[in-house]
Amino acid sequence: MTLEKYLASLKEGIINLDFGVVVKAATEAMAAGVDPNAAINEGMVAGMAVVGDKFEKGEYFLSELVVAAEVMKEGMAVVKPYLKGSSAPGLGKVVMATVEGDHHDLGKNIVTTLLRVQGFEVVDLGIDVPTDKIIGAVKEHQPAIVGMSALLTLTMVKMGEVIEALKSASLREKVKVIIGGTPVTTEFADSIGADHRAANALEGVKKCVAWVASPERRQ
């Protein structure tokens, strides 16, 4: 197979959500000496971009986005050992969490996956994450962005608590804060002093990319 063929298989395999095709193409491509960065970026990431487009156009649903990301994860598992530290420069770190008392994780996981696909290093703290744990992670990892998800009106107030705690720890100026989840409105985001409320995962990820690409990038 030619290089183009391997890359096309990887890309199409992602678009068609085909675990078998992607794992096979990745295995064969690595055995044939294909550059792992090309396999990732021109193969799988290019496929994910098409999946993202289809999602935005309403041709694909969230489930397809989730499955495509999983297919990519399996492909990545094959390619990663060949990377030997030669990966492209990342976009920076993001600390992500579903706030304390809240166990909804679908939205957060999708955002996490898409951020990783874009090249962010994401520290995913999981669900039901207490405020001090988020602050601790910000201190430890020094991310450019903190992302929070809440799906309950009971728990969304915790996002405000985190922002206040960031201020108290003199960390607020060092990070951008992006929040999301069903009950979270722009008014609410403004009221607690978040930088952005994401309407959906793709829009939120675009915002994150814009932040780190902009001159006021704070890292």
Binding site: L17, F19, S63, V66, V67, A69, E70, D105, L106, N109
Partner: peptide
């Protein structure tokens, strides 16, 4: 369960 998209992944796999 839908955590981590498990249902969708099982349904596809």
């Amino acid at each position: 369960g839908s955590e981590g998209g498990r249902f969708f992944i099982h349904h596809a796999k």
